[in-house]
């Protein structure tokens, strides 16, 4: 990988992103296909997110409990968990799961379409494959991630409640009040905006990897792999960057 090649690669990505925004903002819009993609993406990742975020809520609560108890601050458990879940855990889990699930899906799907010339076929019949395949996927990932994050937050908090309830019999209402008291609008909106960026990044990276995959079956594998790996890394990077930005407002 020489420096000029790397720079050309960056230029390619830049052009891709510019093209995405141009196609996404200029009509005709692809509402119907965006709706389809939203449904498909939500459907694909719902089970995984339910499973992982519930477990994360349980585990996080169980592990925080002894150290809080040693301070005599066990009653802080709901508020600690709620902050951790809403600010960081929920978006991060959703981001990583979606990077894995949606990223590999988009990378492999578009990759194989590229390899079998389906994208070229759409191109030559004048059906704007970029809008149809790329824009819809990125837009729906950007829309779906925040929704999935809210869902993941709820499930993780439910897991946490189950665990808190196991330690000492507390009512759901008490738990809910404790949780609600600690979470600010900034926390919620911050994490929603953050997860929208996760979706944007996952969508862009994965569709880029698929759309520009090499010819041949290895190209598809490489595209899916690149999509997942870079998406996951970008989730962490965006997590860090949004933290920096949010700190202005705190």
């Amino acid at each position: 990988m020489t420096i000029p090649k790397t720079l050309i690669g960056i230029a390619d990505v830049y052009k891709f992103i510019v093209r995405f925004f141009r196609s996404a903002l200029v009509p005709p819009y692809e509402w119907r296909e965006i709706g389809n993609q939203c449904y498909a993406q939500g459907n694909q990742s719902l089970f995984l997110i339910t499973f992982t975020s519930f477990l994360a809520g349980v585990v996080f609560t169980k592990q925080s409990q002894p150290s809080l108890a040693s301070f005599g601050a066990e009653s802080w458990l709901p508020s600690l968990v709620s902050q951790a879940v809403v600010r960081s855990l929920g978006p991060l889990i959703t981001g990583l799961i979606c990077a894995g699930k949606l990223g590999s899906n988009m990378g492999a799907e578009l990759g194989s379409m590229q390899v079998t010339e389906q994208i070229d076929a759409m191109e030559v019949s004048g059906t704007r494959p970029f809008s149809y395949l790329v824009v819809t996927r990125i837009v729906s990932a950007t829309l779906m991630l925040p929704i999935l994050v809210i869902y993941a937050d709820c499930v993780a908090l439910l897991g946490s409640f189950v665990m808190v309830n196991a330690f000492n019999d507390s009512s759901f209402l008490l738990f809910f009040n404790e949780v609600a008291e600690r979470i600010t609008y900034l926390d919620v909106f911050g994490s929603l905006i953050k997860s929208a960026f996760f979706g944007l990044a996952i969508g862009t990276i994965s569709t880029y990897a698929g759309y520009h995959s090499d010819k041949g079956t290895t190209g598809v594998g490489k595209a899916a792999n690149t999509a997942v790996v870079i998406s996951m890394i970008s989730v962490f990077i965006i997590d860090l960057l949004t933290l920096q930005v949010l700190n202005f407002f705190r």
């Binding site: 010339e117 389906q118 070229d120 076929a121 759409m122 019949s125 004048g126």
Partner: peptide, 21 residues
């Protein structure tokens, strides 16, 4: 303009390139 032209030119691909979804 390219889209206008492509309406008038049919392209049959080597692998037939049907949309398999």
């Amino acid at each position: 303009e390219l889209n206008e032209l492509r309406l008038q030119v049919g392209f049959s691909f080597q692998g037939s390139a049907l949309y398999d979804s």
